[in-house]
């Protein structure tokens, strides 16, 4: 599973990245958390409002700082769907 955080490095983006890492840790799943900071890459992904979060290439969150439990539930529902 791939979890991608999109954000150029503002405070909110860092918070979301931390929440994503913590969520993966707490779920104890095999997942790679990456962060995309290049604005051109962020734009290419179709993100207009950062921070955004994608799970396996599917955009699940945009313009919102989610807390750990919310990211956990997003990951588990993505796992259900696949």
């Amino acid at each position: 599973m791939k979890v991608t955080v999109y954000g150029p490095g503002c405070a909110n983006c860092t918070k979301l990245e931390a929440a994503a890492r913590e969520a993966v840790k707490q779920l104890g799943i095999e997942a790679e958390v990456t962060k995309v900071t290049d604005v051109a890459e962020i734009a290419k992904a179709g993100v207009l409002l950062t921070p955004a979060l994608a799970i396996d290439g599917q955009m699940v969150l945009r313009g919102k700082v989610a807390d750990v439990s919310e990211v956990m539930s997003l990951i588990t529902s993505a796992m259900d769907g696949s």
Binding site: P8, G9, C10, A43, G46, L48, T50, G63
Partner: peptide, 15 residues
């Protein structure tokens, strides 16, 4: 519209 100055560039490109 919700706006954050840190996403001004992706927003500009998207528009």
């Amino acid at each position: 519209t919700p706006f954050c100055s840190c996403s001004a560039v992706p927003l500009f490109i998207g528009f």
